[in-house]
Design a protein around this nucleic acid. Sequence first.
DNA 1: CGGATTTTTGATAGCAATCAACAGCGGTGG
DNA 2: CCACCGCTGTTGATTGCTATCAAAAATCCG
Lengths: 242, 242
Amino acid sequence: MYRDAKAREASVEGAAFALPSSCAACPVRDSAICCVLDQSGLAALSRFGRRISLAAGQTLLWEGEEAVAVGNLLSGMLKLSALTGDGREQIVGIVHPSDFIGRPFGKESPYSVTALTDATLCVFGRTAFDAFAREHAAIGQALLERTLTELDRARHWMLLLSRKSACERVASLIVEIADRADGGSAIDLPLTRQQMGDILGLTIETVSRSLTRLKRAGIISLPSLRRIVLNRPGELRAIADG
Amino acid sequence: MYRDAKAREASVEGAAFALPSSCAACPVRDSAICCVLDQSGLAALSRFGRRISLAAGQTLLWEGEEAVAVGNLLSGMLKLSALTGDGREQIVGIVHPSDFIGRPFGKESPYSVTALTDATLCVFGRTAFDAFAREHAAIGQALLERTLTELDRARHWMLLLSRKSACERVASLIVEIADRADGGSAIDLPLTRQQMGDILGLTIETVSRSLTRLKRAGIISLPSLRRIVLNRPGELRAIADG
DNA sequence: CGGATTTTTGATAGCAATCAACAGCGGTGG
DNA sequence: CCACCGCTGTTGATTGCTATCAAAAATCCG
């Protein structure tokens, strides 16, 4: 076992100590779920993980099909989406780098996982990961805390989808992106209007109209298509809160 | 420690073996989360649990306030609800007997927990429970699986709230209640029209109109206010699926 | 520059919310 | 026993918001 890790380590330039090759260069190694593992745990996990790339638009898992993989998002952005019987779509979650994806302990995926941008992931076979998580309590614990947080987020979003007006929804999304980016009073939208609509449960026309209304009210400015300046963040938040 | 458990056991009539007093008589002891614990684990957990009752309408935890308790629902039904800034409400979850409630590992409750009917619960102090869960991997694992299932449910509901028509929503709710009750082709609604509306993101009038439309189409019958007969379950399911 | 794509704006229609009135039911008390 | 009241649920009329359909404007990209 030790020889194994040693061999992997030796095969990578610049890998210090006993970090597995792939993990040493991992862009999210301090924030992904694996960061709760010690070196031997990491070595064991990395043995059945591998990196893959997705092009924008590519789907990793399909709703209702067997969920073969779980893993971490390294770069890019993914969406989780569900469809009605006749094809209406709703985005039920957005995945950012270092977020965990997939459905451990469940055979079929309850939603599709699709790349919104080009993306790279570190994936594991689901059954192998399940077994690993059962043996390593730290991973289970970390997964639990992340899942609880996701559940809170999903429930909060239910309120938005069912009770908020179009403007309130758009304001909420801007506030959330601004909070995540934390870049002060201006943000770069990583989403098309269509994607905003899919997230908010609105059409692109309604998203556009809501943005125009916020702009005309002077609360935001839209210097370019993908840029939003928050002129009066307080007011925006007040609208977002309903 | 052993003496302690022994003492509790002795204090209760009819308690067999080493089962903690309260657990021996627990109505959900085979299905609540504690059922993954061995006897010593149960004894340790029961030491800081206690039973409480709630009257219909009483609130156990308030949205945004400190979440002091977690626990299991023993009987009755609870709702989890979130409010917008100006008071619009959405029910984000329904709690049935043997379901776990509360938000471990988080200081404040992201939603309110309120009794829909008279209810009894087995509650634990949150911080004590958190510590216990960290030490007992089996509980953490069980919590994780439940939380993942809840997350799936919540995301599925997001699709309903954002993309389905009033009729489709009402049909979905009836199907879900029928599936859970599993009582064949007739169900007793445990909800008022108002509660159905709060769950579905609709007004009572719209719920009522949707029910009459389904009735007029011959898909269901409403022999009394609280009873629904599924005349054509297949068609109802087709409507529910959108 | 020019064609394709995305976004905005406009006109209209449809669905559910709102406002309002009425019906059914159970309980209370004369 | 029945009149009265309060509550829940149903039905009707109207309004308002968002989807839909359509077209113009802006942006992107070769």
